[in-house]
Design a protein around this nucleic acid. Structure first.
Length: 107
DNA sequence: TTAATGACCTATC
DNA sequence: CGATAGGCCATTA
């Protein structure tokens, strides 16, 4: 128990069809420098099915090198199945599919 | 307790 | 633009 709980809570809130970056989650977790622990938390003890790790990308919007589920390849299919399009660069368009947290209830 | 590591990020050469 | 080095913070041994 520790930062994981916060990270899990945030990652779990990522809506389908959207993706978030480690830095983004880290910032929401409380510390913008916690980006490493974010990815580490997912690698250490994730909850398959409850935590959409595949929606968590690095700052470039690309998948990490040593992903778990079976490789970035499987992940790319998962995101594509959710409606997330990939750029020819092999990255996700964070400008369009980037998760925007803290939506104003006034709107 | 200290030392080492890590699914990262940023700056510099 | 591509690669290398350093820094940050939490977890594990």
């Amino acid at each position: 128990m520790g930062v994981f709980t916060s990270i899990y809570a945030i990652v779990r809130k990522i809506p389908r069809g959207s993706v978030a970056t480690y830095g983004q989650i880290a910032r929401l977790a409380g510390n913008p420098r916690m980006a490493r622990q974010v990815g580490w938390a997912l690698h250490s003890n994730p909850e398959p099915g409850a935590i959409p790790c595949h929606r968590v990308l690095n700052r470039n919007g690309e998948l990490c090198k040593g992903f778990a589920f079976g490789g970035q390849e499987a992940q790319r299919l998962m995101l594509d199945a959710e409606g997330v399009a990939f750029l020819p660069d092999g990255r996700v368009d964070l400008e369009r599919f980037g998760w925007q947290p803290a939506p104003d209830p006034t709107e």
